[in-house]
Amino acid sequence: MNPRGVWAIYRFEMARFGRTFWTSLVVPVITTSLYFIVFGSAIGSRMTEVGGVPYGAFIVPGLILLSMFTESIGNASFGIYMPKWAGTIYEILSAPISPLETVTAYVGAAASKSIIVGCVILATAQIFTATPIAHPLAMAGFLVLMAVTFCLFGFLIGVWAQSFEQLQVIPLLVVYPLTFLGGAFYSIDMLPPFWRTVTLFNPVVYLISGFRWTFFGEGDVSIGASLGALALFLGICLAIVFWMFRTGYRLKS
C-alpha cells in the first residue's frame, strides 16, 4: 500500500483545480442561472407544475446532474490525458503505486471537485426557487455516487483519447444529448408512449429519476431501478478501468 503516493496525486490534482478555482465555480453558477431564467421563469410561467412539484424546483436535480456530468468528464479526462500528452505519465507508471491506487487518486480528486460544484449549484438553485429535499441523506449519497461514476467515465475517456479533439467530442456527442433527452427538464410521462419506451434505453433517465426521487419522493422510474442503473454504470466503468490498467491500454507500450 502506498497511501502517501495516493495523497500526492490527489493533492496535485486538487492544486490544479485550485489554480482555476474561480472560473470553474463561476461558469456552472452562471450556466445554472441562465437555465433558471430561461426554463424556470420563461417556460415555468406557462407550465406551473410537474407531478405536483413547481416547475422551477422540478428542474433542479436535472440541472445539478447535467453540470456534474460535464464537470466530471472534463476534469477526470483532462487529469489523466495531460500527463499522457506531456509525457509526465512516466513518473506515475514507474512509481510504486498500484493501478487501483492511481485511479482512486485521480478519480477521487475529480469527484471531490464535482461534489463541490454540485453543492454550489444546489445553493444557487435555492436562491431562485425553494427546493425541498425529501431524503437529504439519500440525496448526498446519490450525489457522491454520481460524482464517482461520472469521473470514472471521464477517466476512461482520458485514457482512450489520443487528441484534444477526442477529449472534447464525447461530452458534446454523448453527455448533452443523453441528459437533455433523459428528462432533465421534463418528466418522461409527458412524452408520447413510443418515445417514452425509447427513452427507457437511456441510462441517464434512471439517474435523473433516482436523483429526483431523493428531492421529491418520487421519480419516473422506481428508486430501485435507478440504483440498479447507477450500480451497473459504475460496475462497467470499473471493469473497463481495470482492464485498461491490466493491459496497459494506451498508457504503456
Binding site: N2, R4, G5, A8, I9, A15, A95
Partner: peptide, 16 residues
C-alpha cells in the same frame, strides 16, 4: 505549471 519545489516534493511522496 508546477514549481520546482512542489514537483520534487510530489515525486518524493509519490514514491511513498
Amino acid at each position: 505549471f508546477e514549481t520546482v519545489l512542489a514537483t520534487v516534493e510530489f515525486s518524493r511522496t509519490l514514491f511513498g
